[in-house]
Amino acid sequence: MTDGSLVPVRLLVFRVGTLACAAEVDQVREILPRLPTTRIPGAPPVVAGLVNVRGTLVTVVEGWRALGLPPPPSPPTSALEGTLGSTLILELGAPGGGGRGGEAENGSHKLIGFTVDEVLDMLAAGDHTLEGRQGLPGVDPTLVRAVGRRNGELFIVLDLAALLGPVLTS
């Protein structure tokens, strides 16, 4: 799943801590403000908790923890005004899915939330903007599908299945 499958593709670019990241727009169900979470006892620290998305319960992953980044300088205490970042609601397909299995595999789509500090942009990325998977200092290379450039600044295209898949497999 390293190359080929990415071109051309529309990406949502966002910031987690100091890191610019991107996800395929097709995998983003919606962008919500940060929602009040309910802790899930026993879940690993990377899980922020459970949120209510219009009646559906979704497990939310804390972005900076999942990417192994340092904690935000001033932890988001709810006292501040609304700019506490966003929650992306992502749709994870079956591992290696996308086949034409039809309805049989329908149940394997799972929703998961992912907190980010700021949504930056939406852009169409072609061959020329993306380079094949490549490590970026401080980021686990297995989570990186590709590296791209926006306004001269580097961003990584996240492998969401690798990043979030393990959280939900129980």
């Binding site: 006892p41 026993g42 899980v47 949120v51 009646g55 319960l57 497990t59 998961i112 393990p166 129980s170």
Partner: peptide, 27 residues
């Protein structure tokens, strides 16, 4: 009663979750 995808490690003492009057989930 609603189901949720329990993350790995979740204590095996929950049968689901519900949404309380204030819109926040409770297990």
């Amino acid at each position: 009663v609603k189901g949720f995808d329990a993350p790995q490690g979740t204590l095996p003492v929950f049968s689901g979750a519900t949404i309380m009057g204030d819109g926040v989930p409770a297990l």
